[in-house]
């Protein structure tokens, strides 16, 4: 579904991504792990068009998307969340999700002017459906900035799903959460996000990774050092060294 061929990203002399080859198959839940600064978020930013890669090619569903601008990639069907939660803080929960459907609803300028929520054009029902799935319906009219952290993380995932993307990147969906909240997020990913779509999860919390991922890929210093089934990868000597060697062990 998504294929990276020798993708490089350099910031000055630093190679944040060093000739990464990666294949994401349709329907799988890939866990992307690695110590801090290993290039996970850079990989995500490069794929979603925040910045172009310095080298290599990226293709998605057969189309070469190398160097495309972010909005085209998003329209093609790759959605994402952010490690440091990004929402539209002065919009309500409903508006955050509703406005984000932009790429699903086209129809030029007139379409933009017409479709307002008060006029009940079909898609508001869908927004409420998604909010319901993520347990946010009761907070529908709350401003996003007033939500507690777990709800903000859930809202981010909900927003990413509104465009109905075939591929979703979740960047630390359980960052800053308690074990109970993490388990709740794992359940949501398993029950709501993963069915019907491909999913890449970047995470430090091994409970979440082992709970939802069908396959794991490990990055270290911008290189892919291991890839495979969760059990095999976590037993890998190189992986343990990458984490334990720098006293940065994943909290199992």
């Amino acid at each position: 579904m998504l294929a990276l061929r020798k993708v490089e990203k350099r910031f000055g002399a630093l190679a944040a991504l060093d000739r990464i080859d990666l294949e994401v198959a349709a329907g799988e839940v890939l866990g992307l792990i690695g110590p801090n600064g290993s290039g996970k978020t850079t990989l995500l930013n490069t794929v979603t068009g925040v910045y172009p890669p310095s080298g290599g090619r990226i293709s998605f569903q057969g189309a070469d998307i190398t160097g495309w601008r972010g909005h085209r990639i998003a329209r093609l069907g790759i959605a994402r969340t952010f490690q440091n939660i990004r929402l539209f803080p002065t919009m309500t929960v409903f508006q955050n999700v509703w406005a984000s459907q932009h790429s699903r609803v086209s129809g030029g300028l007139l379409g933009l002017l017409r479709s307002s929520p008060s006029r009940r054009c079909g898609d508001t029902g869908r927004v409420d459906e998604i909010l319901e799935l993520f347990g946010l319906l009761k907070d529908r009219e709350v401003l996003a900035k007033n939500l507690p952290l777990p709800a903000r993380r859930r809202l981010e995932v909900a927003r990413a799903l509104t465009t109905d993307p075939p591929l979703v990147f979740l960047d630390e969906p359980a960052g800053g959460m308690t074990p109970a909240e993490t388990a709740d997020m794992a359940r949501l990913i398993h029950e709501v996000v993963a069915p019907n779509r491909t999913c890449v999860v970047i995470e430090h919390k091994m409970a979440l990774i082992t709970g939802v991922c069908t396959r794991i890929c490990v990055l270290d210093f911008g290189r892919k050092i291991a890839e495979g089934l969760p059990g095999d990868v976590l037993a890998d000597a190189k992986v343990r060294e990458a984490y334990l060697g720098r006293d940065d062990a994943p909290d199992a």
Partner: peptide, 11 residues
Amino acid sequence: LSREALAFRRV
């Protein structure tokens, strides 16, 4: 104003 800076602006 490079995209890189933009991406890290809110970190």
